[in-house]
């Protein structure tokens, strides 16, 4: 019984939200759309987990850093938190990549104008 894993996940989520806040990427860009994407993402992954658990593929470990609290057979409390983190991480990486891609050519063009 431990809370290390859960705390790490919550810290990870906090970091994603800080990045989101700093660069206005996801929730701080369009909160309603972000909420829908997050809900769809977490439910999609949970459905996948449920299917894997149902087919007997996914098994919970006895790791000492987990709380051991189960929401359903083989589905620990930490799993939806992890899936939330995965969804946020995915969206922050994507929106961040879009930002970088849209900045890069703009800067180049700006430099070209300055050189001309």
């Amino acid at each position: 019984m431990g809370v290390l894993y859960l705390v790490s996940l919550l810290l990870g989520i906090t970091c994603m939200l800080l990045l989101d806040h700093r660069f206005r990427l996801f929730f701080w860009h369009d909160a309603k759309a972000a909420a829908i994407v997050t809900a769809v993402g977490v439910l999609f992954f949970l459905g996948w987990d449920a299917a894997g658990i149902g087919l007997g593929i996914f098994l919970r470990g006895e790791g000492t850093i987990a709380t051991g609290i189960l929401l359903a057979p083989e589905l620990p409390l930490e799993e939806p938190v992890f899936l939330l983190f995965l969804t946020l991480c995915t969206m922050v990486l994507y929106t961040g990549a879009r930002r970088l891609l849209s900045l890069a050519p703009g800067k180049r063009r700006q430099r070209e104008r300055e050189n001309a």
Binding site: K32, V37, V40, G41, T87, T90, L93
Partner: peptide, 12 residues
């Protein structure tokens, strides 16, 4: 996740 969710985001 990365194939489906950003598309949903862009569409929404």
């Amino acid at each position: 996740g990365v194939v489906a969710l950003p598309g949903l985001w862009m569409w929404l």
